[in-house]
Amino acid sequence: MAEKTRMNLSAGLASSSVALVLVALKIWALGETHALSVAASLADSAMDLMVSLGGLAAIAYAARPADEDHAYGHTSAEDLAALAQSVFIMISASVIGWAAIARLLAENPEPLLHQGKGMAVMAVSILLTAALVTWQSWVARRTNNKVVKADRLHYLGDLLPNVGAILSLWASASFGLTQIDSVVALGAGAMLAVGAVRIFKGAWDALMDRAAPEEVVTEVEAVLSGFPGVHGYHDLKTRMAGSKTFITVHIELDGQKTLDETHAIAAALRRALLNEVPDSDVLIHQDPVGVTPHPDDPSRT
């Protein structure tokens, strides 16, 4: 587990470092070109930096073991960070969209300058992003960390705005089509907004204890069904907190077996669930087959 944490932290550090370099490069490129497509890419990289730093902090904090005040661990820090980041992304998308529309409607839009320098910066951005995604993919395959996976998908999505910025700068330099820059910026702003809504929804659902995704529940049910010694199950509940999945279930066992025997079955089932759903927390309650609920028990939900 310590090795996986180190690998996840290395991916987070790489992500934050690349984002910091890209922000610095694009600030310079924006000053040189005055291109809104570069501004959109800069905002995206600035958001990447915040997301990466938040993800790095979340990975480090979430890796802390449960303590007296946080019996279920610290993984919800990932969701809190994502919630705040999504608000920042939406604000950035709104500012970019407003500026792009204003430039499209302007009678004398501001000309683009030094397009070649801007194209060079965006090309470097693409190369750095591609290298980062390659490293994140390698780490994600070995650790199955959802923060690293999400960050990887986000950087993959960044490649399109970077390519769009290069095309808009090229069109401006070659054909004088400066309006394409605003159109590309609008598209990039829309992509940012869609990403912000997705991040917000995922974080909100987790903080509101929404059940795990349907495919995860299906995987859990597949393990439970027909597991040796388990005659049935009920009260299956799941929820997400950051990158951790919490699973609670009641299983029905032969009441004639000894405590040692039923414990061995439940322990084997727990190992199977942990293997099927990595980074999960599993709690199993054992019931005898055919037990009748006590009238004073709370109704099952």
Rank of each mutant, 00 (worst) to 15 (best):
E107Q: 12
E107V: 14
N108G: 07
N108V: 11
P109H: 02
E110T: 13
E110K: 13
E110Y: 10
P111E: 01
P111Q: 00
P111M: 05
P111A: 04
P111L: 06
L112K: 04
L112H: 03
L112D: 02
L112T: 03
L113G: 00
L113T: 05
L113R: 09
L113V: 08
L113M: 12
L113F: 15
H114I: 10
H114N: 15
Q115M: 14
Q115C: 15
G116L: 09
G116M: 03
G116C: 09
G116T: 15
G116E: 09
K117M: 14
G118H: 13
M119V: 09
A120V: 14
V121F: 05
V121D: 01
V121H: 01
V121N: 01
V121Y: 11
V121A: 06
A123C: 01
A123P: 01
V124K: 10
V124P: 01
V124G: 01
S125N: 06
S125L: 07
S125M: 12
S125I: 01
S125Q: 03
I126M: 08
I126D: 08
L127H: 04
L127E: 01
L128C: 12
T129P: 10
A130Q: 11
A130P: 09
A130D: 03
A131Q: 03
A131I: 14
A131L: 13
A131G: 12
A131H: 10
L132N: 04
V133T: 04
V133G: 11
T134P: 00
T134H: 14
W135G: 06
W135N: 08
Q136P: 03
Q136Y: 07
S137R: 13
S137N: 09
V139K: 07
A140R: 08
R141W: 04
R141A: 12
R141G: 06
R142H: 07
T143V: 05
T143S: 08
N144R: 13
N145P: 06
N145D: 15
N145V: 06
N145K: 08
K146P: 04
K146T: 13
K146V: 12
V147F: 04
V147A: 05
V147T: 12
V148G: 07
V148D: 00
V148L: 11
K149S: 07
A150E: 02
A150L: 02
A150N: 04
A150G: 05
A150R: 04
R152P: 11
L153R: 02
L153E: 10
L153C: 09
L153G: 15
H154F: 06
Y155R: 02
Y155S: 05
Y155W: 08
L156M: 10
L156S: 00
D158A: 11
D158L: 13
D158N: 07
L159C: 07
L159N: 02
L160N: 00
L160V: 10
P161D: 11
P161G: 12
P161H: 12
N162T: 05
V163T: 08
